[in-house]
């Protein structure tokens, strides 16, 4: 009797294994094949403009990459873009979430307006900012500057990276706001009243009650935004094309430039592998620290 019951799970296991095969195969094909091909190409001489130099390259592509000053600049730009946008969206998102939680006339309309940028696709957002807002001649900012008698600023020439950061932050702020607003609203209002009875003013309530309550939601925002911000591309492509010089070239744009402007598939693949490693390092630390917080 007992041996029979012990055998049953083993018997079920084999067909079970077969049944999950299709999804496993699809997943493998989906993920492993491109990954392996990228790694493979990164060890090959593979330039579409120089088909005669083909074959195994060893670490040449990597050497070329790390000795290329553009690479280090793009790495720095990637991280600067990531961290600036994270800080801006989380800080502003938290403040706006707390603000939008208060009752004030026109709150619902204000909420919709604040969240609507999220529905605009990145290329369009970048175009709007480039031509309607930041353009020194046609742009709103230029017009305002001139109205006050200042010289209009040519944003993309003078502060290219900051301009891209502004655009990307504008796109991601609604997301942060949305998540954080729902979190603020889920705060038990008796808790805040208890804090009021305990003598907490507005700032103390924010620091000791609201912020700790929001920590999970902030973690989620940081995690999700990081995944997308490591690969910002359209905004850069549309506005600055990585320039002036390499001022706004991030890793994603560098890979694109290598592969499709210089036709150097091998070099681009090496950049891709670095990007994968970078994303994994960031994800490892981030996911670990946030997962720990989510447990609380």
């Amino acid at each position: 009797m007992s041996s029979a019951t012990q055998e049953t799970p083993g018997a079920i296991k084999a067909p079970g294994g077969f049944l999950v095969m299709p999804s496993v195969i699809v997943l493998l094909a989906w993920m492993i094949v491109p990954l392996v091909m990228t790694v493979w190409f990164s060890f090959q001489y593979y330039n579409l403009l120089a088909p005669e130099t083909a074959g195994f390259a060893g670490l040449d592509n990597y050497e070329f990459l790390v000795t290329d000053p553009d690479f280090w600049v793009s790495l720095r730009n990637t991280l600067v873009l990531l961290s600036s946008v994270l800080v801006i969206t989380v800080v502003l998102g938290t403040l706006l979430a707390v603000l939008f939680d208060q009752p004030f006339p026109g709150r619902n309309i204000a909420r919709v307006l604040a969240i609507s940028p999220f529905f605009i696709m990145p290329t369009v957002a970048a175009l709007i900012w480039k031509n309607l807002m930041m353009h020194p001649i046609y742009g709103v900012f230029g017009a305002v500057a001139q109205a006050f008698g200042f010289e209009p600023v040519d944003w993309f020439a003078q502060f290219p990276l900051a301009s891209v950061i502004a655009i990307v932050s504008w796109e991601w702020l609604p997301f942060a706001l949305l998540i954080l607003l729902t979190a603020v609203q889920s705060l038990d209002h008796e808790q805040r009243e208890a804090a009021r009875m305990d003598g907490a003013g507005v700032i103390a309530q924010f620091v000791f009650i609201t912020l700790p309550h929001l920590s999970r939601a902030i973690g989620v925002v940081v995690m999700i935004e990081t995944i997308f911000l490591l690969t910002v591309f359209a905004e850069i492509f549309v506005t600055t094309s990585g320039g002036p010089g390499n001022a706004t070239t991030n890793l994603a744009f560098l890979i694109y430039a290598r592969a499709l402007l210089q036709f150097d598939i091998g070099g681009a693949s090496a950049g891709g592998v670095v990007a994968i490693v970078l994303a994994n390092i960031v994800a490892f630390f981030l996911v670990r620290s946030i997962a720990r917080r989510l447990e609380v």
């Binding site: 038990d188 008796e190 009243e193 009875m197 305990d198 003598g199 000791f208 700790p212 920590s215």
Partner: peptide, 20 residues
């Protein structure tokens, strides 16, 4: 006078403890 300065303390039905 504000709630903190009336010298009262309140116990809520939901307890309203600070979870963190």
């Amino acid at each position: 006078v504000g709630p903190a300065d009336r010298g009262l303390a309140m116990v809520f039905q939901s307890y309203a403890l600070y979870p963190h």
